[in-house]
Every structure is written in C-alpha cells, then in structure tokens.
C-alpha cells in the first residue's frame, strides 16, 4: 500500500508540474530553470537526516557531502534566480536607472 501511495503522489505531481510550467512565457525560461533547479535541491532534506544519524559513520560522511552540495544548489539557485528576476522590468518602469 505504501508503495502504491508514493507512486500515486509521484504521478499526480508530474501532471501538476506539466500544467504549471506549460503556462510560463518563454521570456522567463532561464529564471524558471534556475528556480526549479533550486527546488531540486530538496534532496537536502534527505542529506540532513543521513548526515545527522550517528550510528552509521559512512552514511554520515556521505550525508555531509550531500548537505554541502545540496546547499550550494539551493542557496545559489534561489539567489541567482532572484538576481535575474530583479532585472525584469516593464516598459513604464524601464530605464529608471
């Protein structure tokens, strides 16, 4: 049952993702990509649990490495997306600098 439930969630999320992204205009494709890239750093949650469990040393080491890389992905991804999006301006406010 548990397995079916997880697969169920997976399939629904894929369909939801398709619906959400289909509407994004091409002007925003780069920020969309780096922003969704940051979301894929969600694997950080798994990394935190592995890194913090003290009973398996090898898993902890792998976990810490995963934490470091996933954090780069998350922090860097969100920050760079924000930097890009801050530049997108409409005509009225454009050229104010």
């Amino acid at each position: 049952m548990e397995i079916i439930f997880l697969i169920f969630v997976f399939v629904l999320a894929i369909f939801l993702g398709v619906e959400l992204i289909n509407k994004v205009p091409s002007t925003l494709h780069t920020p969309l990509m780096s922003g969704s890239n940051a979301i894929s750093g969600i694997t950080l949650l798994g990394a935190l649990v592995s890194a913090g469990s003290t009973n398996n040393e090898f898993a902890s080491i792998l976990g810490v490495l995963a934490v470091a890389f996933a954090t780069i992905n998350v922090v860097g991804g969100y920050m760079v997306t924000d930097r890009m999006l801050a530049m997108f301006k409409k005509k009225e406010s454009g050229g104010s600098k």
Binding site: V9, A13, I14, G17, V18, I21, S36, I39, L45, G46
Partner: peptide, 13 residues
C-alpha cells in the same frame, strides 16, 4: 514525500 513531490515538479518542468 516532499522529495517526491518537489522532485517530480522539477522533472516535469
């Protein structure tokens, strides 16, 4: 579950 949901959103995108 959150890894599955977030991961598949990105996968679809």
């Amino acid at each position: 579950i959150l890894l599955i949901v977030a991961g598949s959103l990105v996968g679809a995108s």
